[in-house]
Amino acid sequence: MDDQQIKESAEKIERAEWNKRQRKAKLQQLLTISSPMLVLVLWEIVTRTGIMDARFFPPPTKILFTLFDMGLHGDLFTDLRVSLVRILLGFLLGVIPAIAIGLLMGMYSPVRYTISPLVMAFMPIPTIAMLPIILFIFGIGEFSKYITIAISVFFPVVINTAAGVTNIDNIYVDVAKNYGANAKDFFFKIALPGSLPVMLEGIQMGQAIALLTIVAAEMIGANSGIGYVIWMNYKAFLVPQMYVGLVLISFFGYLFSLVLRGLQNKLIPWK
Rank of each mutant, 00 (worst) to 15 (best):
P240Y: 13
L200H: 08
Y228E: 15
Y108K: 04
Y172K: 02
A210E: 01
L27V: 09
T66L: 03
P36F: 10
E218M: 05
T32Q: 07
L196Y: 11
D75V: 09
M205F: 07
I214G: 03
A176V: 05
P110W: 07
V247F: 06
Y179M: 14
V157I: 04
N160W: 00
A121G: 06
M205C: 11
K20D: 13
K145A: 09
A162D: 01
Q29S: 12
P124D: 07
G74N: 12
R81D: 14
D53Y: 07
E8G: 01
G106T: 00
A216V: 15
F68Q: 13
L255G: 12
G102M: 01
Y172E: 13
A54Q: 14
A98L: 02
G164W: 00
I13M: 10
K266P: 12
A10R: 08
L89I: 06
M219H: 05
I51M: 11
S152A: 09
S109W: 00
Y243N: 04
L80P: 09
S257T: 11
Q29P: 07
I171G: 09
L260I: 08
Y254I: 09
P60I: 03
A216Y: 02
S152Y: 03
L30P: 05
L255K: 15
E142S: 12
M107P: 00
M242Y: 05
I140L: 15
G139P: 06
V247E: 05
V165T: 01
N160K: 04
V244N: 03
Y146K: 12
D75M: 04
A163H: 00
A236E: 10
T61G: 11
H73W: 13
L211A: 10
A210L: 10
S257Y: 15
A210N: 10
F77G: 06
F138M: 13
P59K: 07
I209E: 01
P110H: 09
P124T: 10
L267H: 11
L103R: 00
V111C: 02
N178F: 06
I226M: 05
D69P: 02
A181C: 11
A129G: 09
N19E: 14
I13V: 13
A54V: 09
L67Y: 15
M120V: 08
R112F: 00
G102S: 01
P59D: 15
E17P: 06
K235F: 07
Y113K: 15
Y228D: 14
I87R: 13
E201W: 08
R48W: 14
L31C: 12
S109A: 04
V247Q: 03
L246K: 06
I149K: 14
N170M: 02
Y228M: 06
I159T: 06
K12Q: 06
K62H: 12
L248G: 08
N19W: 15
I45N: 12
T161P: 04
V198C: 01
L238F: 15
G227K: 11
I134E: 12
Y234R: 13
E14L: 07
L92V: 06
Q28W: 12
L192F: 01
R112G: 00
K235I: 11
F136V: 14
E17C: 03
Q5C: 00
Q5N: 03
M219C: 08
P60M: 05
P60R: 11
M242L: 12
F91I: 07
R21T: 04
M242D: 08
V229P: 04
V175H: 05
S224Y: 04
K20N: 08
S152H: 05
I168V: 07
P197C: 04
V165F: 00
F56Q: 07
